[in-house]
Every structure is written in C-alpha cells, then in structure tokens.
C-alpha cells in the first residue's frame, strides 16, 4: 500500500444500544469517547468507546435505527463484531489500491456524522472481512455541520439496504 492504514476501531453490532454501552462502560471499564450519533445514511445509532490509557483500543457500538438498517443482517445471524475500520490519508486512492488487490468496494465514499462529515467507504476483502475506511483529513471546505451533509442518500447505499438486511 502506498499509504499506511491506521487502525481506528472495531465495529460491533448490538440490538440494544443502552444495554451494550452500559455493559462496556460498567463491566469492561470502557469510557465513552464520542457520541452517541445518529447516522441517517447508515441508518444506525452509534458511539465510540475506549480505555483512557489505551488510545488504540477503540470499539464502535452500532445499533440499527430502522428495520432496514444494514446491521440488521448481522444481528439476525448473531454476529456482533463485524468490521474493522482503518484511517487513511487519501480515501479514494486507498480504495483504488484495495480494488486492485482484490477487494470489493461495496459502498462509495459518503460523509459520516460520527466523523464530523469526514468520508467513509466500505470494502469486502478476499479474506471475507468487512473493512471500513475513514479519511483522516477533514474535507475542504468543511461543512459547519456534518449531519447536514447526509441529507441526500446515495443510490448505492439506498440500494444496498435490502441486500445488507439479509
């Protein structure tokens, strides 16, 4: 890879957001780093948790907001942890590189509320894992409110809902 993939977080799907956050904070000693957020594009409620002394140990708790949320498919199969997220400097360039190395790009870049409008994208690796990428640079010019950038649902995401529910 021409640029480093920096581990960002492990994504964990949960059915009960409050119960999951309570367990991670009270039983496992995690702290809420940011959130909760509601992302209308991904159709999820989420927050990031970590240990104060371990900045690299971050988990994302993800709960479906609607019955057609993409994470419902994982929950239906009893799958919790389902994606690893990496931060990259140039998202489009990394997507192209991953594509050339046999990864499927399953969602083109879209802004994410949880990252202040920074773009995220999704891939599926030949080793059968779901990978999320988040760009490390804030888009310029920066939106004053990342949430407002998410009003238009891209066709690829909208069309993916039925597929990812299964």
């Amino acid at each position: 890879m021409s640029q480093a993939l920096k581990f960002h977080h492990l994504g964990i799907a949960v059915a009960d957001f409050g119960q999951a956050v309570a367990f991670y904070t009270q039983a496992l000693g995690f702290d809420v780093i940011s959130g909760p957020f509601e992302d209308p594009i991904q159709k999820v409620k989420l927050c990031f948790l970590g240990h104060a002394a371990q900045s690299r140990s971050v988990v994302e708790i993800i709960c479906p907001l609607h019955c057609d949320s993409p994470v419902n498919g994982y929950l239906a199969k009893g799958i919790g942890a389902y994606h690893v997220c990496y931060e990259v400097a140039r998202l489009e360039e990394t997507l192209g590189e991953l594509r050339s190395k046999g990864c499927l790009v399953i969602s083109n870049p879209v802004p994410a509320v949880a990252f202040g409008g920074r773009k995220i994208a999704w891939c599926f690796a030949p080793t059968r894992q779901v990978i999320e990428l988040v760009e490390s640079q804030t888009p310029s010019p920066r939106s004053p409110d990342g949430a407002r950038e998410t009003g238009n649902v891209p066709q690829s995401i909208e069309g993916a809902a039925e597929l990812w529910m299964r």
Binding site: G73, I106, S156, G159, R166
Partner: peptide, 28 residues
Amino acid sequence: WDSIGHMNLVLALEERFNTSFTVEEIMA
C-alpha cells in the same frame, strides 16, 4: 444468498469470468 454470501458470490464471479464489478453493479 445473504449479505456475506452475496459478497462471496461477487468475488467468485469476478475470478471465474475475469472481470470486475462496480458498486452499482454489485448492488444490482
């Protein structure tokens, strides 16, 4: 043929038919 099955299927078809699919094609 669930979500993960679909991704496995697309990867297999790319290899079998020596092609690559766009996001829009994968979703279609």
